[in-house]
């Protein structure tokens, strides 16, 4: 078992029950706000979960770009002397995206079209972001004591992965 500090610093673990709770909130949010899809992304650009009409969208690229652009926004806030911008939005002809910060290390990206309004999305998004932050907070506290599943990344995993890398990526 590692210490809490090590866990927080070393890796970000999402357990099924946490993600299921977040999924339920995203689903309810989509229903209330009439948005198309919602993506929950960690600060480093890894997609955690997604809900709604996500077909035709490359979720990994979306996650990397959202995290990248939010990082840039954070620097922009710093330049302007603001501790943090909590949300940002982009508007296109047919589609809009609203991105909101959740806690310190994750964010939610909402994609919506003319079926709803930016105000409606922003309203429910704030509520969603607070609820998800609470779930993450509880999960993080509990995480300190749950390590069993983390052992998936053990020696045999490493060996198997190395074999796979050798097979897939030949010079």
């Amino acid at each position: 078992m590692a210490t809490d500090e090590h866990l927080r610093a070393g890796r970000l673990v999402f357990y099924s029950d946490t993600v299921n709770q977040i999924d339920a909130l995203l689903k309810e949010f989509l229903r209330l706000s009439k948005s198309k899809s919602a993506y929950f992304i960690d600060r480093d650009g890894h997609l955690v979960t997604q809900m709604g009409e996500t077909s035709g969208v490359n979720p990994e690229a979306l996650a990397a770009l959202v995290a990248g652009s939010f990082s840039a926004t954070r620097e922009l806030a710093r330049v302007l002397g603001e501790p943090e911008f909590h949300s940002m939005a982009h508007k296109g002809d047919n589609c809009q995206i609203q991105i909101a910060l959740v806690g310190k290390r994750s964010m939610i990206a909402i994609v919506f079209d003319g079926s709803t309004t930016a105000g409606m999305v922003a309203l429910y998004c704030k509520e969603l972001s607070d609820k998800v932050a609470k779930i993450l907070d509880i999960a993080e506290r509990q995480q300190a004591m749950h390590h069993k599943e983390e052992e998936v990344v053990d020696e045999s995993y490493t060996t198997s992965l190395q074999e796979k890398l050798d097979r897939l990526f030949e010079d």
Partner: peptide, 14 residues
């Protein structure tokens, strides 16, 4: 930071 997502059964490294 390595992300381990048990819901998606996924390990992700950067």
């Amino acid at each position: 930071m390595v992300q381990i997502n048990f819901a998606k059964k996924e390990v992700s490294c950067k």
